[in-house]
Amino acid sequence: MFAAAINKRSFGIAVTLLVLLGVLPFFLDRFYIYLTALILVTGLLATSLNMVLGYGGMYQFHHAVFYGVGAYACALTLIKTDLPPYAGFIVGPVVAAAVGVIMGLICVRLSKLYFGMLQIALGSLVWAIVYRWYSFTGGDDGLHGVPVPDLISSINGAYYFTLIITALCMVLIYLIINSPFGRIFQAIRDNPERSETIGVNVKRHQLVGLTIAAFFGGVAGSLFVTVEGSVFPDLMFWTLSLEILIMCLLGGWFTFLGPMVGAGIVVSLQTFVGMYTEYWTLIMGIILILLIFFLPEGVLGFFLERFSSREQAMSAEK
């Protein structure tokens, strides 16, 4: 019964949020619409990371690679092929997922820190190729003025496209986390040895999980192309990977919406603090240090814990 009530409430929150986000362009100016779109894209990226990190317990240290690969694959399809314009938004995620499979096949043999480090090595290799291959990827300049389809090239068009796709992906990720696969994935996070003992092929589940996360990372990358109209190698640099790890941690990595909240906080900080000072990473670093010391469950995790303990106390009184 309790579970059903929780879900009804979350459903209500989700619908309210969606409606609010849907009417936003009628009240805000271009800049804020752009910023909201960027938060949604980054939030989707962080959520896709958290699927394997918070729910799968995998040390996915270089998730930004899939974001970058998705963005580049989408942009290159739009620029260099005669395929119908929207094909780029399918090619992006699919190529990201394919890279995920290849990296996964190499990485999942290892566990924890070694897994994360090998992933950084492979990701840096991808980055280095993109960074140098001027004739194809534009090298360190990146590619600018990507011909995004007309319907979604205006700021409002890009915003609604981003909102719809992000909402759709969030629903899918939510379903996956709460599916039998998601349940087993969490079991593996808690205890890989026991999972093997109950007949679960741990490595294969991790490979599937990583591929799915890479796919959604690629979706986020394609959306970035829509919002920005350009791609550059920084999209797959390892520092971005650590930044999205911070977003997960900041929002609460054992909660579903935590990474989205974390992305909102980080992207807003980056934008607004960046207006007043060029030392925003200093502030970011200090926030992170405080966070690790005082709020290791993250902002949303902290409030949910408060909330559920109050609720438990209330039901105990009855």
């Binding site: 650590l242 911070i246 990473t281 992170l288």
Partner: peptide
Amino acid sequence: CRLYEREHLMLLLFTFAFMLVFGDLVKL
């Protein structure tokens, strides 16, 4: 010295926080 018992991921992010701080301090 207060964080040695934390898991690797936390330690990694903690040292990353210092990388951010040091990067800007050098700029300052």
